[in-house]
Simulated scan of single mutants.
Amino acid sequence: MADLDVTEILFDPDFMDTGLVCKRGAQVIGDDGMAVNAISNTPFAGVVTSDRGDLLERIATGERVKGSITIHTVFPLSDGAAGQTADIVSWRGRDYTVTNVNDYQHFGAGFVCATCELIPLAG
């Protein structure tokens, strides 16, 4: 295990944002035999930074805005697994899909670094 405990910074109120909500969907089989997503909303805290920021993409059919953020948190975010969709994170009135999670559990108390893409694409 590494000696540096990065979670001390993640819990520092100067860095931490407490306005995050994780919308986690688990697929369950309904009475009709069809899969449905059961969504749970869980507030959590983390350090949010810009990843690539908001980008205007111009294509033949028009324009759209793409965006992404990076979240460092001790909350176990997921980019999807068997029977579970990728987490949706709400932050500052916008929703982001968790597209990549790096696990740093070997640094002190442990944390994850998640890349999140803006949804829906606007434009």
Rank of each mutant, 00 (worst) to 15 (best):
D87Y: 02
A122G: 06
E8Q: 12
E8L: 11
R52Y: 08
G93E: 07
S68C: 05
G30C: 05
T85L: 09
A26N: 14
N100Y: 12
N41H: 15
T61V: 10
R92Q: 14
T18V: 08
R64S: 04
A81M: 10
G108R: 00
F11T: 14
V36F: 11
F75G: 03
D31Y: 10
D54T: 09
P76H: 01
A26T: 15
V89C: 01
A35D: 12
P43W: 01
A81R: 15
M16W: 02
L4T: 13
A60V: 04
D31L: 12
N100L: 13
V65D: 05
A38Q: 15
G19C: 10
Q27T: 09
K66G: 03
V101I: 03
R24C: 04
Y104V: 03
I119T: 11
T85A: 07
V89N: 00
S40C: 04
F75T: 10
I29G: 00
H106C: 02
L118Y: 02
I88D: 05
D17H: 08
T61H: 01
K66A: 06
V98G: 02
A81E: 06
A114S: 13
F11D: 14
D103P: 03
F44G: 04
A82N: 13
T7D: 00
M16C: 04
D3H: 03
D51L: 13
Q27P: 00
I119P: 01
T61W: 07
T42L: 05
K23M: 13
L77S: 00
A35R: 15
P76E: 05
G67E: 12
M34C: 01
L20T: 12
L20F: 05
D51N: 15
R58A: 01
E63Y: 13
G25V: 10
A81N: 09
S40A: 13
D54R: 00
N102M: 09
D79G: 04
A109T: 00
D3S: 06
F107Y: 07
T18E: 03
A109H: 04
L121Q: 09
G93L: 12
F111P: 00
D5K: 02
A35C: 03
P43C: 06
D79W: 05
V112F: 09
A35Q: 15
V74E: 13
V101K: 05
L55P: 01
G93K: 13
D31H: 07
G62K: 02
Y104F: 14
I39Y: 07
V65G: 03
F107I: 01
A2N: 10
T18A: 06
F107H: 06
E8M: 06
Q27S: 06
S50T: 15
L77E: 04
A86Y: 00
A86C: 02
E117D: 11
S50D: 12
V112K: 02
K66T: 07
